[in-house]
């Protein structure tokens, strides 16, 4: 079952003289429950594609549809709401809120949605942290966690609103080998158990090999 489709996606940056075309008519379809790796050299357009799929940026032209919703014509407010409910993010540098605890970071998307931190959200967040092996660190300030722990908190946060799609931009890029494999094991487990779709941008072929599908982006298009 198709989760998202992008067709003839074009993204350019800069004005006429300094225009840089990053995506050049890219086509891609992701099925529900897929775990896909996004590969390609630096500057190939991987991060730009992830940003557009995450509704953080609009394409210059082309079609972007997810869950049957045409996102290319949606307003900023609609995209924000859609992002909150259907998309999770894991960044290379975890990007946690340093003044909040691990649990507060995890339940952030739900609190944004509900307008407050509910007991149900706290219980759900704590459960996710236990699942990530961070049961002892639930109330730890995010700033005091190790790199691997922070990234696992970030994964838990991405899963909090039970999104259909999780976009991960080099999620293991800043971790040692052991932590990287631990994070990837968790992602794989969630993909299998929950059926959550993952699109993971990576340079690491070993990490990519843990995904069932490899998508290679080259010169602004999906190759092969």
């Amino acid at each position: 079952m198709t989760l998202l489709t992008v067709a003839n996606l074009v993204k350019t940056f800069g004005s006429e003289q300094t225009e840089t075309r990053v995506l050049r008519g890219l086509d891609l379809t992701l099925e529900k429950g897929q775990m896909a790796a996004l590969l390609g050299p630096s500057g190939s357009g991987k991060s730009t594609l992830l940003t557009i799929l995450g509704t953080l940026m609009q394409p210059t032209s082309g079609q972007h549809t997810m869950l049957g919703v045409d996102l290319t014509r949606a307003s900023d407010a609609d995209l924000t709401q859609f992002r909150n409910q259907h998309i999770g993010f894991v960044f290379q540098f975890h990007n946690l809120l340093p003044d909040f605890t691990a649990l507060e970071n995890v339940i952030f998307p739900t609190a944004i949605r509900d307008g407050r931190e509910t007991a149900k959200a706290r219980a759900c967040g704590a459960e996710l942290l236990i699942r990530m092996g961070l049961g002892e660190r639930v109330h730890f300030p995010a700033a005091n966690l190790s790199g691997g722990q922070k990234q696992r908190v970030a994964v838990a946060r991405a899963l909090m609103n039970a999104p259909e799609l999780v976009l991960a931009d080099e999620p293991t890029g800043n971790l040692d080998r052991a932590s990287a494999l631990q994070v990837m094991d968790l992602i794989g487990q969630i993909n299998r158990d929950e059926g959550t779709t993952f699109l993971i941008s990576t340079h690491d072929e070993k990490i990519a090999s843990t995904c069932k599908r490899q998508i290679v982006v080259a010169d602004g298009k999906v190759s092969g």
Partner: peptide, 12 residues
């Protein structure tokens, strides 16, 4: 942090 909030679905 504002960027993260927006990415997590916080409105303007």
């Amino acid at each position: 942090e504002i960027g993260i909030m927006r990415a997590m679905g916080a409105s303007r």
